[in-house]
Nucleic acid binder design. Structure first.
Lengths: 181, 181
DNA sequence: CGGTACATGTAATCTGTTACATGATTCA
DNA sequence: TGAATCATGTAACAGATTACATGTACCG
């Protein structure tokens, strides 16, 4: 039940509609936990049934009516228990690494191409993270605790992307040098 | 259908039983894609039905009979198509980062404790990867293509763990310094 | 006598993805 | 007129986790 906790986390700050959540919950939380709108609407139903969230229907003119969700007291305490509980680390499960095991059977150029694509993605993502950092998170020592948490998540993203880019560089170098032979 | 491709990848090299696969497919592939024995047996059934793998029942004395799986020609070509196809990157989905967003609401010490536990896990994992590297993958330029792929996967693991450890250091520093105030 | 290794499964449930479905308003 | 934004859903299927279930042989 972890998407539900991500949703509840987003609802800690403010009330949101399913639509808002679907567009990445919150600009930054979405980087670490995304989900499709279908899944979010289903979870919201489950969470409502469990009374962890409450809905208010809001009629709008010119736009479709919407359902605003907010965290209940029991949702809040459930969330706090979850945060306090153990965190299991699960394997990353990246197709690309599985594909690498097939090098030698499959044309190396095919994999090189995919690594080059990956490299571009990581560069873009890193640039985005760094823009966010510059805008709101200089001087991490002066942030309040709530913002510090967000900063640390962002920092983890930055380190991950940097590591991925380093790896891409090395992989490309090695693959190109052996293709030359 | 990606666990099935991981299974097929392991079967590229040699025939295996479900039991073998369950204990990490192959010492190293398991680091990047693990699965429980239940899931593996189910997938093997599906793969057999699709004729991507073939079974041979092997009677054993003293041990339970076993079923040896091997990749068929059509499985092999399916796998090759998959490798050549696009690789989508999916969000990492790590609970810990979602939990960080609740800093300030939840006692910071709780999260610090979890980060310290993570740090130990990453240290152990990194040490393991480095042992593997020293044993079989010095001089990456001299490896054949097949082994180069494995080396690159391992290297990705090493970079990931290093990045995670760097992050842990920074996070611990920041959290301890603000707890002191 | 108890634990570990070997060996294979079913069933229930939960999570996630893909496809399908609708409908108004605003902007170019 | 057509695309984008706002807004919410159902249904089918695929993938993953947890619980339940069985049985031998070997080592200490």
């Amino acid at each position: 039940m972890s998407l539900s906790h991500a949703i509840m986390t987003a609802l800690m700050d403010r009330q949101l509609t399913g639509y808002d959540l679907a567009k990445q919950f919150d600009v930054s939380l979405g980087f670490f936990w995304s989900a499709s709108h279908q899944q979010i609407y289903q979870q919201l139903k489950t969470l409502t049934a469990a009374s962890y969230v409450a809905v208010t229907e809001v009629a709008q003119s010119g736009k479709p009516d919407k359902r605003l969700y907010e965290l209940t007291e029991s949702g809040r305490s459930e969330l706090i228990d979850w945060v306090a509980g153990e965190t299991k680390r699960k394997p990353a499960r990246d197709d690309l690494f599985v594909k690498l095991y097939n090098m030698g059977v499959v044309d190396g150029a095919l994999l090189l191409k995919q690594i080059l694509e990956r490299q571009t993605e990581h560069q873009q993502r890193l640039a985005l993270y760094q823009r966010i950092r510059e805008r709101g998170y200089q001087q991490p020592g002066k942030l309040d605790q709530h913002q510090q948490g967000r900063f640390l998540a962002l920092l983890a993203g930055i380190y991950q992307e940097r590591a991925a880019l380093q790896w891409c560089d090395e992989a490309i170098l090695l693959m190109q040098s052996s293709a030359d032979n």
